[in-house]
Amino acid sequence: MIDKPPPRKPMLLDWETGEEGATAPVPPARPPRGVPPPPERVSGPTPADVPPVPDIDLDVPKGQAMLAASRIATVRGSRLGRFAGWVFGTLFAFVLSVAAWDFVAGLLGRNTVLGLVAFVLIGLAVVTAAALGLREWWAYVRLARLDQLRADALAARAKDDLKAARRVVASLEGIYAHRPDLRWGRARLAERHAEVFDVDGLLNLAETELLTSLDQSARREIEAAARQVAAVTALVPLALADVAAALYANLRMVRRIAEIYGGRSGSFGSVRLLRRVFVSLVAAGAVAVTDDLLQSVAGGGVLSKVSRRFGEGMVNGALTARVGVAAMELCRPLPFHAAPRPKVTNLVSRSLTGLFDR
Rank of each mutant, 00 (worst) to 15 (best):
S307P: 12
A284Y: 03
L12N: 04
Y261L: 06
V75I: 13
E207S: 10
D242L: 04
A326S: 15
G201V: 05
E221A: 13
P28W: 04
A245L: 00
M1K: 07
G185V: 06
A69R: 11
A258Q: 00
A241S: 13
E40C: 06
L189S: 00
K4F: 09
A284D: 12
P333V: 10
D152H: 12
A226G: 14
N250R: 02
T290V: 10
R220K: 12
A156Q: 01
L58C: 07
H178G: 05
G123F: 14
T17V: 01
T345I: 00
A249L: 08
A22V: 01
V236W: 04
V127A: 15
G311E: 05
A177S: 11
G185F: 04
V199L: 09
A48M: 09
A246D: 03
D357N: 00
A339Y: 01
T17S: 14
P31R: 02
A93H: 11
L330M: 10
W184E: 15
S280F: 08
L124Y: 13
D200V: 02
W137S: 14
L235R: 09
L58H: 11
R82I: 09
P39Q: 05
L293R: 14
R150C: 13
A326Y: 03
A118I: 11
V344A: 00
V232Y: 02
A29P: 01
G263S: 01
K163T: 08
L355N: 00
F197N: 13
V196M: 05
P61Q: 07
R76P: 06
Q228C: 05
L319E: 02
A73H: 14
V302W: 13
P342G: 01
L13F: 08
L91I: 15
Y248M: 08
F88D: 03
A129T: 09
V348I: 01
F83N: 07
G262N: 06
L319C: 05
A164T: 07
I122C: 15
V87Y: 06
D161I: 12
A177F: 02
A105E: 14
G174H: 11
A177P: 01
L132E: 15
D59A: 05
V297L: 12
S349W: 00
A224K: 07
V126H: 15
V75W: 15
L247I: 09
E136C: 14
D59S: 13
A65M: 11
V344I: 04
V95Y: 02
L146S: 15
R309E: 10
A130Y: 15
D181Y: 03
E312K: 09
D357F: 03
V87M: 14
P32H: 01
S270T: 10
R79D: 13
A231L: 13
E329A: 08
P52Q: 05
G81S: 11
V127S: 12
R308L: 14
E173G: 11
S280V: 09
L172Y: 13
P32C: 00
L211D: 10
A245Y: 03
L294K: 11
P38H: 04
G313T: 10
E136L: 12
T74F: 04
L107S: 12
L203Y: 05
P31E: 01
G201I: 07
N346G: 02
R252C: 03
T353Y: 00
T320Q: 05
P37D: 13
E40K: 07
F336A: 06
S171R: 14
V282Y: 07
G285W: 07
K343T: 01
A231W: 11
F278G: 07
Y261K: 08
S270A: 08
P51N: 07
S349E: 00
